[in-house]
Write a protein that binds this DNA or RNA. Structure first.
Length: 430
DNA sequence: TCTGGGGTCCTAGGACCC
DNA sequence: TCTGGGGTCCTAGGACCC
C-alpha cells in the first residue's frame, strides 16, 4: 500500500508574522491579501472571533477594532523565504525524489519506501524539527492517497487529541469509517462550494457518503474529477507525488488599483509594468510565450458602477520573451479596449501558449537575427538589473518606475523583510 | 471609502477537415 | 428530396486549488 504524508504549516502567513513578534502569541492576528483587500490567513484566536477566510477586510473592521485584531499586509518575501526553510527541513526526512512542494505552505511526502514502523512517531519528529529549526508549527496527515492524506491532516489539525499527526493508514476500518462520517463532504480536497449542494441532491453529505457512492454515476453526472475523488477516498492512489513541478502553461500578472481610473495613461503604464513582471517570470521559467492576453476590469462589486470587462489577445508571430515587443502589443490592445466612460479598477496581462526556450522556433520570414541578439542582450540586462536593484528599477519607457506610480496598491501594514534584507534583520539584545 | 492574485483541469460546442 | 462518420483544434465557461 502507498503511504503519502501531507505536511503543512498551521496558519502559515500569520505564523510567519508571529515568529518575529512573539508578543502577539495568544492574540487575534490576520494577514491581508494584496491591496489589503481580503483576509487570507488567521490565527486561531481570529478564527474564534468568526473572521472568515477570504472575508473582505472592510467587513471585519468593527469586530477587529472591538477585539484588537492585529492585521498585516502580506509580505511574500518573508513567506517565500520561510517556505524554503521548511522545505529544507522536510528534505531531511525523505529523498528529494519523494517530496512534492505542493504550495507555499504544503508538501506531499511519499513515505511508502520509508522503513519506519510507526508513522505517527515519524510525523512527530518532523513537527519537532520544523518547530525547532524554523519556529513554525506544522501538522502531518498520512494516508494511502493524497486525498486521504489531506483529510488525515485536517483531522490532525481539528482534533487536539491527535497532537498534530494523524496516520489514517494505521487505523482499523471501522475507525476510518467513523472519522470520515464526521467530516462534511465540503472538506474533501476537490469538493468546492458549488459541488456541495449538488452532491446533497444525491444524498451525499459526508466524506463517508462520497466514498461509498457509485463512482460511475457520479462520473456521468459530474466528471472524471469527481470519480477520481471517490477512488482516492477508497484508498486508491490516483495522483502521484510529483517531485518536479510541471512546466507552466500560462503566466499572469495583474493587480487592482487603490483608486479607479478613467484615463488611458495609468492603464497603459500599469499594463506595461505587468508585461515586464510577466516576462521576468517567463524568463525564470526558461520559457517563451506564443500568445499574449490583456484584460481590464471595472469594480465588479459595485452595483452602481458601469461595468466593462474586456479581454483582448494576440498570437505572436513567433514564440518570444522580447519585452519590448510584448510591451508594444499590450499597449495596442489596451488602447483598443479602453473607453473613457468606465472607471477601471484592475489591469492584467497573461502570457499563454508557453513553450520551452530551448525549442525556439524561428519564423519563416525571420529577417533579423542581429536584432534578435540585441534584444536578447537587452532582456538579460533588464533581468539582471531587476535582480540587483529590485523589480521595476529599470523598465521600458513609460512602464513607470518603482516608487513613482500613481496606481500603486494599498499595503498599509507591511512587516519588515526580517530574513531577506540586511537592514531589517531582527536585533538580539543580550 | 474599502472585496487578491495566480494557477490547473475538464467539458461542451462550434468550425473545419476528409 | 435525401444529408455520414470520424476526427482535430479552438474557445468559453465552470469548477477547483492555495
Amino acid at each position: 500500500m502507498r503511504r503519502i504524508a501531507l505536511v503543512d504549516v498551521n496558519n502559515f502567513y500569520v505564523s510567519c508574522e508571529k515568529l518575529f513578534r512573539p508578543e502577539l502569541e495568544g492574540k487575534p492576528v490576520v494577514v491581508l491579501s494584496n491591496n489589503d483587500g481580503c483576509v487570507v490567513s488567521r490565527s486561531n484566536e481570529a478564527k474564534a472571533l468568526g473572521i472568515r477566510m477570504a472575508a473582505p477586510w472592510h467587513h471585519c473592521r468593527a469586530i477587529a477594532e472591538q477585539h484588537g485584531v492585529v492585521a498585516f499586509s502580506s509580505n511574500y518575501g518573508l513567506y517565500g523565504d520561510m517556505s524554503r526553510r521548511v522545505v529544507d527541513v522536510l528534505s531531511q526526512f525523505v529523498p528529494r525524489m519523494d517530496l512534492e512542494v505542493y504550495s507555499i505552505d504544503e508538501c506531499f511526502l511519499d513515505v511508502t519506501k520509508q522503513p519506519h514502523v510507526d508513522a505517527s512517531a515519524w510525523g512527530q519528529a518532523i513537527r519537532q524539527r520544523v518547530r525547532q529549526w524554523c519556529g513554525l508549527p506544522v501538522c502531518a496527515g498520512i494516508g494511502p492517497s493524497k486525498t486521504l492524506a489531506k483529510l488525515a491532516n485536517f483531522v490532525a489539525k481539528k482534533q487536539p487529541s491527535w497532537q498534530g499527526v494523524c496516520d489514517f493508514t494505521s487505523l482499523p476500518p471501522q475507525r476510518q469509517a467513523a472519522l470520515l462520517a464526521e467530516i462534511g463532504v465540503g472538506e474533501v480536497w476537490g469538493v468546492g462550494r458549488r459541488l456541495v449542494p449538488q452532491l446533497a441532491e444525491f444524498g451525499i453529505h459526508t466524506a463517508a457518503d462520497l466514498r461509498d457512492a457509485d463512482a460511475a454515476s457520479l462520473r456521468t453526472r459530474f466528471s472524471v474529477v469527481v470519480e477520481r475523488i471517490v477512488r482516492e477516498l477508497r484508498g486508491e492512489a490516483c495522483l502521484e507525488v510529483e517531485h518536479q513541478p510541471a512546466a507552466k502553461a500560462q503566466i499572469q500578472s495583474a493587480r487592482s488599483f487603490a483608486e479607479p481610473f478613467r484615463e488611458l495613461e495609468p492603464l497603459l503604464e500599469s499594463a506595461r509594468a505587468h508585461v515586464v513582471r510577466a516576462v521576468e517570470k517567463l524568463r525564470a521559467e526558461l520559457a517563451l510565450a506564443g500568445r499574449i492576453e490583456v484584460f481590464l476590469e471595472t469594480n465588479r462589486f459595485s452595483p452602481d458602477e458601469l461595468q466593462h470587462h474586456p479581454v483582448a489577445s494576440e498570437n505572436l508571430p513567433a514564440a518570444t520573451d522580447d519585452v519590448l515587443h510584448l510591451v508594444g502589443v499590450a499597449t495596442r490592445l489596451v488602447r483598443a479596449m479602453h473607453r473613457v466612460r468606465f472607471r477601471y479598477q484592475k489591469v492584467g496581462v497573461r502570457l499563454l501558449d508557453l513553450s520551452p526556450r530551448s525549442g525556439r522556433q524561428a519564423t519563416l520570414f525571420d529577417d533579423a537575427p542581429v536584432r534578435d541578439a540585441r534584444r536578447e542582450r537587452l532582456g538579460q540586462v533588464l533581468e539582471a538589473a531587476g535582480k540587483r536593484w529590485g523589480r521595476g528599477a529599470v523598465a521600458p519607457g513609460t512602464a513607470g518606475l518603482a516608487g513613482e506610480r500613481a496606481w500603486h496598491m494599498r499595503r498599509g501594514a507591511l512587516s519588515p523583510a526580517y530574513t531577506t534584507r540586511w537592514a531589517d534583520l531582527p536585533v538580539v539584545r543580550t
